[in-house]
């Protein structure tokens, strides 16, 4: 049993659910515990990560990249060691911005085995 816990949040006031749902299901099927919190503001993401003591944070980005960047920055302050990966609407300039913050980015078209592989790697499962 992995027992690894992943938080899945949406940073935008945006309801596209296909991406986060398919990713959450793939992670569950790979043995992860995925905590869904829905649309959350940066500070809400941070508090949920703390309370849930997760091993990895997943952000689905549906809106402006700077909102996600604020969430990541706030997280880094609270729990600098916590890995973050994300997907959704992430055009190349946004991808570069997030990668510079150490966030792994899985844009549209990413295959689920790659995402699951990243989750395993980022949670230290190899």
């Amino acid at each position: 049993m992995s027992g690894k816990r992943i938080l899945m949040a949406k940073t935008g006031l945006d309801g596209h659910w296909r991406g986060p749902t398919i990713v959450a299901r793939a992670l569950r099927d790979a043995g992860f515990e995925v905590i869904m919190i829905g649309m959350a503001r940066p500070e809400e993401v941070v508090q949920a990560c703390v309370d849930e003591d997760v091993d990895l944070v997943g952000l689905n980005i549906g809106g402006h990249i700077d909102v996600a960047v604020r969430a990541v920055t706030a997280l880094r302050e609270e729990r600098p060691e916590l890995p973050v990966f994300c997907g959704g609407v992430v055009p190349p300039h946004a991808k570069r911005k997030l990668e510079a913050l150490g966030v792994e980015v899985y844009p549209p078209g990413s295959q689920l085995p790659d995402i699951v592989g990243a989750a395993r790697r980022l949670t230290g499962l190899g």
Partner: peptide
């Protein structure tokens, strides 16, 4: 594995 979805209903208390 598990999808823990209860929190989605608890959104008013996030934060």
């Amino acid at each position: 594995g598990a999808i823990l979805g209860d929190r989605v209903r608890l959104q008013p208390h996030l934060g």
